[in-house]
Nucleic acid binder design. Structure first.
Lengths: 187, 187
DNA sequence: ATCGTATGATATACACTGTATCACGTGTAC
DNA sequence: GTACACGTGATACAGTGTATATCATACGAT
């Protein structure tokens, strides 16, 4: 069995939850490991039995989210309606808004967001065929789709999800996908 | 006379230069104040006679750049060719690539990049008149223009300025400005 | 019920921050 | 050019957070 000890899972769950809470309350940088362990009601030294430092904990927390998100968008091919794909994406953000806020606010502390963009760009490039004579290099076009989408999510979170996930999906299609595909991709 | 003491200007110049160098070498977070003062060959305590902390120094360094950039793009109105404005922008980035790299890599440690986006968005909104029936809210459209431009600059820096500033200006117009204006603005 | 192990509590070494102090040297003003 | 003002260098110090080590205890797996 690969199943972990209940105590381990409990400790890691409490630490992750505490990190998310404290980051949303006071910002990632100002949260200390002692803060996390106290909020989680876990011994200070115990933290280091699971993670080397604060970034490692955050990294693990966010990797789960990112894997889920990638898995969510993976099955869709270029022939699907971009608005539907977008709606799925924004629905996921809606259902995991706390963690997404942490992810987007803690950028910079490590190259995590950059890794997300790289992975996403690769995905976009795989799912599209480049146009013959395009003014815009496909690497730039793919990067633009991913980075703009993240910026759009950021805006949505900063404005407390004022529009529905469906509306955001449509905006995502009209503002980002359609114009970029028209310029650089055959489809 | 408002002119500062030569020693003050010298110290601040050395500290700023040291911060930029070290940040490009090892990343902003891992640079300590002691590192900066040693590289600048300045007494440790002297640092605090000018800045409260590391972020204050970075903030001052970047504010100069941002003011210059805003001043550069300010005179242009909506009737100018977006590609020309874009070329100017990318030329500025080219001529100040080191500081721009620091700005874009150190995001997160403070809300600086977010402030840039907010200021830029306000500017875009002032220079455009919203279309009557648009599917895309103008706040989102303006935010998209600014955030996408920053992402494009980021891509350019990460790929060692492989294209010319003129080419990037054209891409900026075709990929970002034209599609967004067509959707949300009368011009 | 027993063994293995995760945890709690505590102590410690270490690094960095931020402040205080004083002697020294440079810049400015006259 | 001289005198004074002031910025600087060097050092010491307290405070805070990190990371490791140790030992007794309590929990989980079998």
């Amino acid at each position: 069995m690969e199943v972990q000890d209940r105590r381990v899972k409990r400790t890691q769950r409490l630490l992750a939850q505490a990190l998310i809470e404290l980051t949303l309350e006071r910002g990632y940088e100002s949260v200390t490991i002692r803060d996390i362990t106290e909020r989680a009601d876990i011994g200070y030294a115990t933290f280091f039995r699971h993670y080397t430092d604060k970034d490692a904990l955050l990294h693990e927390v966010l990797e789960v989210v990112l894997d889920e998100m990638l898995l969510l968008l993976q099955p869709f091919k270029a022939d699907a309606d971009p608005a539907s794909v977008g709606t799925l994406l924004f629905r996921y953000v809606q259902d995991h808004s706390e963690v997404c806020r942490v992810l987007l606010s803690s950028r910079g502390s490590m190259g995590l967001l950059q890794k997300v963009i790289e992975t996403g760009t690769r995905n976009v490039l795989e799912q599209h065929t480049p146009a013959e004579q395009s003014q815009v290099p496909i690497e730039i076009a793919a990067h633009h789709i991913v980075a703009s989408s993240i910026a759009l999510i950021q805006w949505w979170l900063d404005h407390d999800l004022v529009y529905s996930a469906e509306q955001m999906g449509t905006i995502y299609r009209d503002l980002i996908v359609r114009p970029t595909e028209a310029l650089a991709f055959n489809d």
